[in-house]
């Protein structure tokens, strides 16, 4: 039997590296640097004392975890963290359920007015959120939803973008699967849940992360719809570190650093699906 060659192949000679690739890597490197620098400064500032924050060295002279201890033990930061988690998880779950249910219906059923409903849903994408805030506020006020979890969550429980995304993906699921399940005796809801949903996992993952991130970082609507500090979400709560007399940058950065952790976890867990989902969305869309 021939011996297996375990030596590493030599690096590509410089003459074989195309100039286009060098340009591409340079652009990507600069882009990556631009994106990572603020995040590194956020972590760096969170490890500094208030007197060191204008010292722009990336590695703090005398790093301290005091800010983290203070943020996590004093004030209402843990409560805001839980509020954000609750809101983001509920809205994400709701979007996964309703967006995919409506998307599936629009993709796989033929009924009068189907196209009209789809266009009506799509057209809401063209209205900026800022314009919707006033009707949302009036609606919340009328129904008594202001300053409640439901008040924060209801505008995002189902989105036109999510419905559109899921419709596009469900259209790629062959009808034979659905008809085979019908022949096997499943009802329409079970077909959607047991057959169609597992076949669009990449799209569901992409939708989950977009929705989660969007709600985790949402600031404008939670700020308007809540007045009690107990109901603040993280982005709203973090602004309370900036008062008129002084802006506590080190505390804001510490809070922001902690707030980044769940999004990183969600991304790391789902990134395989997200990349596939985004690629497929690009191909099929």
């Amino acid at each position: 039997m021939a011996a297996i060659d375990t030596t590493l192949s030599p690096p590509l000679p410089m003459s074989r590296i195309k100039p286009g690739r060098i340009v591409m890597w340079t652009v990507l490197f600069i882009g990556g640097l631009l994106m990572i620098t603020p995040i590194l400064f956020m972590f760096s500032t969170s490890l500094k004392t208030s007197s060191q924050i204008y010292d722009l060295r990336l590695i703090p002279q005398s790093p301290t975890l005091a800010n983290y201890i203070e943020v996590l033990t004093e004030g209402q930061f843990p409560r805001w963290f839980l509020n954000s988690s609750f809101v983001a998880i509920c809205v994400t779950a709701s979007n996964i359920f309703f967006d995919s249910l409506v998307g599936y219906t629009l993709a796989k059923f033929r009924f009068r007015g189907r196209q009209f409903v789809f266009i009506a849903i799509l057209s809401t994408l063209m209205i900026p959120t800022e314009m919707l805030v006033i009707p949302w506020y009036l609606m919340s006020a009328n129904f008594g939803w202001l300053d409640s979890y439901w008040g924060i969550m209801f505008p995002g429980m189902m989105t036109a973008f999510g419905t559109f995304l899921m419709k596009q993906f469900f259209e790629t699921v062959p009808d034979d699967f659905i008809e085979a399940a019908r022949m096997d005796g499943l009802n329409e809801f079970t077909i959607w849940w047991k057959i169609a949903m597992p076949l669009v996992t990449p799209a569901l993952s992409a939708l989950a992360i977009f929705t989660f991130l969007g709600n985790w970082t949402a600031f404008f609507w939670p700020l308007i719809s809540t007045t009690s500090k107990e109901l603040y979400t993280l982005p709203v709560g973090l602004t309370s570190f900036a008062v008129e007399q002084a802006i506590q940058w080190e505390m804001i950065m510490t809070g922001a650093a902690i707030a980044t952790i769940p999004t990183l976890v969600v991304f790391l867990v789902l990134q395989r699906y997200i990349v596939r989902g985004v690629m497929l969305a690009g191909l099929k869309g």
Partner: peptide, 27 residues
Amino acid sequence: PKERNLAMVFQNYAIYPHMTVRQNIAF
């Protein structure tokens, strides 16, 4: 269809990719 007690085999097989052979047959 489910009340007709007929079974159908499709051109594209229509076996569910997220299930094993056993689960597909059991379906």
